[in-house]
């Protein structure tokens, strides 16, 4: 069940697969806990997307390209 539970957790499960997995989860405490913890972990990983490079870092990265880029590139 790990694969179907992963797909439900990240929202990619569809149709019959989604229905079957959710039906199973409704009657299986072990899979329900697994799904809940997986969703929690994925949700926390989403928060890591908030990390943005600092303005100085952006400038350093762009400068590295600009200094070596052809004119008009």
């Amino acid at each position: 069940m790990e694969g179907p539970l992963n797909k439900v957790a990240d929202g990619t499960a569809r149709g019959l697969g989604l229905w079957y997995t959710l039906s199973h989860v409704a009657h299986c405490p072990q899979c329900r806990r697994f799904l809940e913890s997986l969703k929690a972990m994925i949700g926390k990983l989403h928060r890591a997307r908030e990390v943005e490079p600092s303005e100085e870092s952006v400038q350093r990265m762009l400068n590295a390209y600009r200094m070596s880029a052809p004119p008009g590139g």
């Binding site: 069940m1 790990e2 899979c31 806990r33 697994f34 913890s37 997986l38 929690a40 972990m41």
Partner: peptide, 26 residues
């Protein structure tokens, strides 16, 4: 994800709600 959950299970905090709900087969 499985490997990451294993690592996070060792944490004392609530980073995951893992409470022994493993044992999922492939």
């Amino acid at each position: 994800r499985r490997l990451l959950r294993e690592r996070l299970k060792a944490w004392p905090s609530d980073y995951t709600a893992v409470d022994g709900a493993d044992g999922k087969g492939k």
